[in-house]
Simulated scan of single mutants.
Amino acid sequence: MASPRSLRGPARPRTATLRDVLSELAEGNLRIDSDRMGTPPWPQHRRRMVVDSVLRGWPIGPVYVITTGRIPRVIDGAQRLTALLDFVKGAFAVDGLLSPVDPVLRELDGAHYAQLSTGMRQAVDDYPIVVIELDGIPPEHLRPIFVRLNGVDWLTPEQRLFIEAGGLGEQVRDLVNQAADRGLEPGRIGFSNVGLAYDEVVIRLLAATEARQVSAAADEFEKRAKTGEPVVDEVKRRAAGSLASLLRLPSVDGAGIRFSKATLLSWLLLLVQADQRFGPASAHHIGRLLEWFERQRRRISAGLKLSDPPPVISEYPALPYPELLNLFNEYAAIDALGATQILHRDVVLWLFLLACGGLPSESVSPGPRLFRLYAALADGADPDTAVTEVVSEGWGAW
């Protein structure tokens, strides 16, 4: 039977005023950790409901803070605090018509924080927040704790797997946070981390980088997530490098450059392979290719013609570029994260990289096979058949 000491655990509750908690956030003595569950941002209606609860004196639930590290971090309750901080700053007004209707709150409908009476503002400022500080908890245990705490039944088994991926999951979270600091955000790349989409891409990238096999992004990532064992530092460094290289590309900010999980993964796999085979200078060629490729494949998908010629060097004029873009789109549309689809997209990107002059050595793999593929396509081979043949010959190891 567990001793009383083992039952106490690392949680230390304290009560603070809303003013004090918001001041800590504003002064940088407390920071909000990025979302651990991949939940979408709260709609304005829900943000107003939190303010309404505070105005009524109703409970809004505790805030959980982890105290390891230099600055304590809010790891649960971030959306509540963000809503309240925005309200105090004047970002939105009271909704006095929420039910159950309260005659006092009805009179406040449309009022901002600064327009409240002195007594009402004081009541908001003095609202008690229960802060539960956690200390001594291994980082890999945090997300499983909050899965249980919040009862997130909306998670799919796969998403729950990402959250419960132990040390590997914390490495993924660290990489996602680093990438977010460099610009991995929906307005820039085209999709958000709702449903832990970024986490899934990064776990797949790590699985492939560790195995040095493109297909491992489909075949091995679930097994790796289940073991929860972290990858070695070199694998994490290479994955981080590919994320950083992509987000540094000026072309990512161009109009019409938007990714899905599948296409983002394909570009990251290309970057991590090219870096290992040819060094960091390969990112320049990939950036030039990406700027043209992503715009034009979207035109092809919409049934339009190419608006610009591909940025290929003179030695490679004969590729059926529209057909290859269409092929890439097809393999990015259905079962887009399956091994076959990932491998086919990888071959197409490498073929375009060859044509853009991005292979400094003809003898280094995958150069020889790409030259044979180019020759077959230049002779009129069907693109899908020719690419499928390359895949069937064991494409993807590096």
Rank of each mutant, 00 (worst) to 15 (best):
L161Y: 08
G357Q: 15
V101M: 05
G69Q: 09
M49W: 12
E393S: 14
A216Y: 00
D76C: 10
G228F: 14
D86M: 11
P383K: 06
V364N: 03
I257F: 02
P40R: 12
P41I: 09
W154L: 15
A93W: 01
D52I: 03
A78D: 03
Q178C: 02
A111L: 05
V74H: 06
K236Y: 13
D253H: 02
L270T: 00
C356Q: 01
P62F: 05
R70I: 12
D335R: 00
F259K: 00
G96C: 04
I257R: 07
P144K: 08
V21N: 00
V54H: 10
G57A: 02
V347E: 00
A333E: 00
G77P: 05
R48G: 02
A355T: 04
S192R: 06
A83N: 07
A123K: 14
L351D: 09
R106C: 06
E200F: 13
P280N: 11
P128V: 03
E389W: 01
L149W: 05
E140W: 02
A179T: 09
A225P: 04
G396A: 08
V176I: 09
V201T: 14
W292I: 08
Q115D: 12
H45P: 07
G61Y: 08
K305D: 15
L116W: 06
I60W: 07
R238Y: 09
L184S: 09
Q79G: 06
S242K: 06
R299F: 08
E210K: 13
L98Q: 03
P13W: 01
P62S: 11
F221R: 00
R19Q: 11
G77A: 14
G136E: 10
E229T: 13
P230V: 05
L247H: 06
L149D: 02
L319G: 01
S245H: 07
F146T: 09
R212M: 15
A339F: 01
P62M: 08
G396I: 01
I132Q: 15
K236M: 08
V63E: 04
L268S: 04
L270K: 00
G195Y: 04
A262G: 07
I66K: 12
P157E: 15
R143T: 05
T263L: 07
G166M: 14
Q213S: 03
K89Q: 08
V124A: 07
E210T: 10
T340M: 08
F87V: 06
L337H: 07
A355Y: 00
E389S: 14
E229M: 11
V147D: 10
A318Q: 13
V50G: 03
R143N: 13
L337P: 10
A262R: 02
E107N: 14
V50P: 06
A375Y: 05
V131C: 13
A197W: 08
L55G: 00
C356I: 03
V202A: 13
L268D: 09
P309I: 05
D33M: 10
M1G: 15
A216N: 08
M120V: 14
